[in-house]
């Protein structure tokens, strides 16, 4: 479980987060959604420790993460995996080397143990046999899957995903969403996904947090989204006329 307590964050005069308090539950896909500029990425970076909040606290289970010195965050960091928006794969390394990087750096595993673990996670993301290819030689969707493989290779307890579907086609997005969801359940992880992909919201949103102008405007399960009377949420999720029509149709079908 990860808990954010009254998080404020300012960049100079610009106050981006204005008192966010929420809980991200273990074994669930927790979503942070909101318009561009609503503070999603800033909140995610505060949760993961890349930014320091102006005020407020971040708890990882019973550890007050936000108050720890960089050295003391190491035990927690070893349990964190993160998938970046750009995948952040090292260009000069092969897929095998990218995934093996945390193992080489932080473990004393033998070469064969490391290779077994790399092959295991590559199989989990359905990319067997791509070990010797470079990031530039694989597609965007495959890069995301390599990013996921690298994020889970150390068997993390906490998984962060920053816009995992950006730049992907709807079908590949679905594959990535399903992969993140199943990995979360299998490993009983606390997964936090920052997204503005509405398919993700409706497919895997178990604990959705809607940010509007730095405030938490709504929190709930995807099943509540369709029938919500929250105008802000409705305007955000069903923004296009097409989705509005779909929603009306779905509601009329369920009421009949």
């Amino acid at each position: 479980m990860i808990k954010a307590e009254n998080i404020f964050k300012s960049f100079g005069e610009n106050e981006v987060l204005k008192g966010i308090s929420t809980v991200f539950e273990t074994g669930k896909t927790n979503l942070i959604i909101g318009r561009s500029g609503s503070g999603k990425t800033v909140l995610l970076k505060i949760l993961v420790g890349l930014y320091r909040a102006t005020s407020g606290k971040v708890w990882y289970d019973d550890v007050l993460f936000s108050e720890l010195s960089p050295k003391k965050t190491k035990p927690i960091r070893s349990k964190i995996g993160m998938l970046f928006q750009s995948s952040a794969l090292f260009d000069s390394m092969t897929v095998n080397e990218n995934i093996g990087f945390p193992l080489n750096m932080f473990t004393n595993m033998t070469s064969s143990e490391k290779q077994n673990r790399i092959d295991e996670v590559l199989e989990r993301v359905s990319l067997e046999g791509t070990n010797n290819r470079f990031p530039s030689e694989i597609s965007g969707g495959m890069q995301k899957r390599v990013g996921i493989a690298r994020a889970i290779v150390m068997k993390p307890k906490y998984l962060f995903c920053d816009e995992p579907n950006s730049g992907l086609d709807p079908k590949t997005s679905l594959v990535i969403d399903e992969l993140i969801k199943s990995i979360t359940i299998e490993n009983k992880m606390t997964t936090i996904i920052n997204t503005h992909d509405m398919n993700s919201v409706m497919e895997i949103g178990e604990n959705i947090n809607l940010l509007v102008d730095g405030h938490l405007a709504w929190k709930g399960h995807r099943s509540e989204v369709l029938r919500t009377d929250n105008d802000i949420l409705r305007d955000f999720i069903f923004a296009s006329p097409f989705l509005q029509k779909l929603r009306s149709k779905a509601l009329s079908n369920t009421s009949q």
Binding site: V48, L50, T73, F84, S86, A88, M105
Partner: peptide, 13 residues
Amino acid sequence: QKEHIDALDVMGL
């Protein structure tokens, strides 16, 4: 710019 440095920091490096 490609978030590689963030990736290293998140790993605890």
